[in-house]
């Protein structure tokens, strides 16, 4: 179906975009359009004004500042994946991007768009959450930074006020001593995940876990940190028994989705635990821990 009628603003700068977003009518940012355009075609979204931010020069670049990768809101996923500096600096990001849809979608879809869209089954919000990233927001109240833990308010709901937009994402780059892994279960490669997990693990010189971040996607109504698994791992010499215990505790305090068309709740629980175990084992291995 055709979308409902809307006016189109091609913003030439963030300042112009913010003026356009302050319109009294219902406005929306248009980035890659890979989630918004289908929603408009299905009339699930009927914005009256679309503000295209992809031509704003300030939003088109990425930079590495003190082990934080800053990604502008107009940078498509496919550009990130191909950038040799990003491939070297943040292989976990590159691996995560490869799990999203197919190349033709990633050619236009943006990382910041995925964060703003806040699909509970999306990979990138979980990556931001597991690595304690931040979102740079600008709007009528001026620029601010929102930690990942405060950004995902609910299913398809990000903590953005009226007239605000995301200008960049700040992803801490895992250091050389940090192991990482991301994995998901989907019906076919490229489909949305039925469940997924992303984690980073840091081991100290004696092989004990000195830092860990685990986030689940597709399991709850928002991406969610697995504090249960993190608590089990922290400070431990990681072996098979610790990994089993971490997986067993991984859904403690997590509000798992109920039965729905894609999978029953029991399946999601099993899948979530299995993925936490699998990704933690892989992360410990890549951090140089031999036992897993």
């Amino acid at each position: 179906m055709r979308s409902a009628a809307f006016d189109y603003v091609r913003a030439g700068s963030v300042a112009e975009a913010l003026v356009a977003l302050a319109d009294d009518r219902e406005t929306r940012v248009l980035a890659g359009g890979q989630s918004l355009v289908p929603m408009m075609a299905l009339r699930l979204a009927r914005p009256e004004v679309l503000v295209d931010i992809t031509r704003c020069p300030e939003l088109q670049s990425c930079s590495l500042e003190e082990s934080v990768l800053r990604i502008g809101a107009a940078v498509p996923d496919a550009v990130l994946e191909r950038d040799p500096d990003i491939r070297a600096a943040h292989p976990l990001l590159v691996r995560t991007l490869s799990l999203i849809a197919h190349e033709e979608i990633r050619a236009r879809g943006t990382l910041c768009g995925s964060l703003a869209h806040a699909d509970p089954a999306a990979e990138l919000p979980a990556l931001l959450l597991a690595t304690d990233g931040e979102v740079e927001v600008d709007g009528p109240g001026g620029p601010r930074r929102v930690p990942a833990a405060e950004f995902f308010d609910g299913p398809f709901t990000a903590a953005l006020d009226d007239g605000e937009m995301v200008v960049a994402a700040r992803l801490p780059v895992p250091g050389p001593a940090v192991g990482w892994a991301v994995d998901e279960i989907a019906r076919r490669p490229g489909d949305f995940a039925l469940a997924g997990a992303v984690c980073t693990v840091e081991l100290d010189s004696s092989g004990r876990c000195s830092g860990v971040g685990v986030a689940l996607f597709g399991v709850s109504s928002t991406p969610v940190r697995s504090r249960g698994a993190e608590e089990v791992l922290m400070g431990q010499q990681v072996d098979e028994a610790v990994l089993d215990a971490a997986a067993a505790a991984s859904l403690d305090g997590v509000d798992v989705l109920g039965d729905e068309v894609h999978a029953p709740a029991a399946y999601r629980r099993d899948a979530g635990r299995a993925l936490v175990r699998r990704t933690l084992a892989a992360a410990v291995r890549s951090a140089g821990g031999g036992t897993a």
Binding site: G33, V37, P38, D52, A78, E104, R108
Partner: peptide, 11 residues
């Protein structure tokens, strides 16, 4: 780049 022409407005 190969893209979906149904997910892009002509403008």
């Amino acid at each position: 780049a190969a893209v979906r022409s149904c997910l892009m407005f002509a403008v």
